[in-house]
Design a protein around this nucleic acid. Structure first.
Length: 254
DNA sequence: AAATCAGCCAACCGCGAATCG
DNA sequence: GCGATTCGCGGTTGGCTGATT
């Protein structure tokens, strides 16, 4: 999207600007963050010469300017992860976003609302068309891969007792790679939602840490700390010593 | 070709939690 | 311990875009 093309009425409420960001504002914000790092958003306005609230600056950075953000359509794998984690945690978008490196909570939230939150309205035409097209392509290529069942998934889907228990008291099994170092890493090879689903079925529940926004290194994140408090357990093992931890974006690379 | 509809997504808002002094 | 400030999250809105009628 081209900044400023949204047609928002840019207006100033006193000193503060609202509405779409201009490239100049983006530049100022990027420069500020590269110099001072993330945080202290309320002082950004003063220091960077931006007539924006700290909130607005943070949002713009997190959702649009932060390095490593992916743009464009979510992959079937990502869709699968969203469904799986939403079943576990509900609308905990920021938590879910931690497991989708490069994706923002806002993006996931928007995605969920537009794809899954509708309740069987006739407006699913577009999706149906997409799925039909997808299926036709698959039939043509003869891959035998199943069409995505996403349209059947709703936010009202009932959880199995196991998932309900998980939601209540999330348990965290040992990361499969730690448990079994020779385990082939399949994630990137899963080329359909169904593959991912199978994969996630096998692996669901373990966590890996994508939360290194402040450059503090890969370590137990807030969620783990919260869970540790909740379960009175130690989550020290989250400081994985993997070779392929992506410190820039945070997380374990598959 | 024009009008209407629905999807999409950036940005805003309100609120609660965390942190600071 | 307490009030003020800051931060982060989830929900909602506004308006552009592309598809459909």
């Amino acid at each position: 999207m081209v900044v400023g093309m949204m047609g928002w009425n840019v207006h100033e409420q006193g000193w503060w600007r609202k509405g779409p960001w201009t490239p100049e504002e983006d530049k100022l914000l990027i420069e500020y963050v590269s110099l001072h790092g993330e945080g202290r958003w309320s002082s950004v306005a003063k220091s960077a010469g931006l007539h924006r609230t700290g909130k607005s600056c943070r949002l713009r950075w997190v959702n649009y300017l932060r390095p490593g953000l992916k743009r464009g359509h979510l992959t079937p794998q990502e869709e699968g992860i969203i469904i799986e984690l939403h079943a576990l945690w509900g609308n905990k978008w920021s938590t879910i976003a931690r497991y989708l490196p490069g994706r923002t909570d806002n993006e996931i939230k928007n995605y969920w609302r537009t794809h899954f939150k509708k309740k069987g309205k006739p407006s699913e035409k577009k999706d149906r068309r997409r799925l039909l097209k997808q299926k036709m392509e698959q039939d043509e290529t003869g891959t035998g891969a199943k069409a995505s069942p996403l349209s059947e998934v709703t936010s009202e889907q009932t959880l199995s007792p196991e998932l309900q228990a998980q939601q209540e008291f999330p348990t965290v099994p040992l990361h499969p790679v730690m448990e079994n170092p020779q385990l082939p890493v399949l994630y990137q090879e899963a080329d359909s939602w169904s593959d991912t689903n199978i994969l996630m079925d096998g692996l669901s529940g373990w966590l890996w840490n994508f939360d290194d926004q402040n450059g503090k290194g890969v370590q137990a994140n807030n969620d783990c700390s919260k869970m540790a408090k909740q379960n009175q357990a130690s989550f020290a093992p989250y400081s994985f010593g993997f070779d392929n931890v992506d410190v820039q974006n945070g997380g374990y690379i598959y």
